[in-house]
Simulated scan of single mutants.
Amino acid sequence: MPDLIHNLEAVQERIAKAAQAAGRDASSVHLLAVSKTFPAEDVRAAHAAGQRAFGENYVQEAIAKIEALADLRAALDWHFIGPLQSNKTRPVAERFDWVHSVDRLKIAQRLSEQRPENLPPLNVCLQVNISGEASKSGASIAEAAQVAHAIAALPKLKLRGLMAIPEPAGGLDEQRVPHRQLRELFERLRGDGLELDTLSMGMSADLEAAVLEGATIVRIGTAIFGARDYSH
C-alpha cells in the first residue's frame, strides 16, 4: 500500500517540523494511527511500515480487528479513543493497552474493577471538555483536578495524562488556544503531585498547533488512511 506508507511518512515529517518549530525533539511526540472504520489489513500494512500504536473508537469493530490481528498482539499497542458507555467497559478493560476517553469517574471505576489481574495496569487519560461544547464528552476544567485525583487512586489503572478534542478553529493561532489551555491544566495537575506524562491532543487538521503546545500523542486518522466511509 504505497499511499499508506507515503502518508505515514508525510505525517511523521509534519510532526518533525512542528517539533523543531517548538524546540522539541520529534521523538517526544508519538503518533497514534486512528484506524477506526478501516480494515485489519490496513493496520497490518501500517505495522509493516513501522507503525505500532493504533486508535479505535467503536468497541465491536475494535474487538474484531484485535482478534483478526492476534498474531501481532505483542507488536501492537491498542488505544481506545471513542466515547465509552458503562456497558462496554469490560471488553475494553480486557483487550486494550490505553483508554484516552475516560470522561467521568464511573467509567474509570468500572475499568479498574474489570481489568484482568494478569495484565499490566491499564493506561488511561482523563478526557477534558476543553472548549465547553455541549455536544462533547469530558470533565470540565473546573472539575478535572478532583476527578483526576480520584482516578489516580484506583487500582489496576495508571493515569497517564489528559486528552481533549477541541472545537475546530481556523488558523494556527486560534487552534493553539485550547491546546494551550489543556497544557496549562496538565501542568497544574503535575504541580498538585500527579505523575502525568501524556497530553493526547491534535488530529489531522490541527497537528501542528497541538505539537507547538506540548502534545505527546497526536491522534491521526484521515491524513494516514484517507477519507472515511461511514455508510456501513
Rank of each mutant, 00 (worst) to 15 (best):
A45N: 10
V43T: 13
A10W: 01
I151M: 11
E133I: 06
P116D: 02
S231H: 13
E41P: 00
N7M: 00
N123S: 15
L162C: 14
Y58S: 06
N57P: 06
E61D: 14
T89M: 03
K65Q: 07
L154H: 12
P39V: 01
N123W: 01
H179A: 10
H149T: 03
I165R: 07
S112R: 04
V211A: 02
R180S: 09
A64W: 04
S101Q: 08
R115A: 04
L196A: 08
I66K: 15
R95T: 05
I107N: 02
S35P: 03
A22H: 12
L122P: 01
G55E: 01
R188L: 10
P166I: 04
S140P: 13
S137I: 05
D3C: 07
E117W: 06
I130P: 00
P120W: 09
A139R: 03
D192F: 05
V124A: 01
L172D: 05
L126N: 04
V43R: 01
A26D: 01
A152F: 10
A148K: 09
G23C: 06
Q146D: 12
D77G: 06
I224Y: 04
A145R: 06
A227T: 14
P121Q: 10
A215W: 11
L189D: 06
R104P: 05
G23A: 08
P166E: 02
M201T: 08
E167M: 09
P178W: 03
E213Y: 09
D173N: 13
R219Q: 05
E143H: 04
G23Q: 04
E174R: 15
F80D: 03
R95G: 06
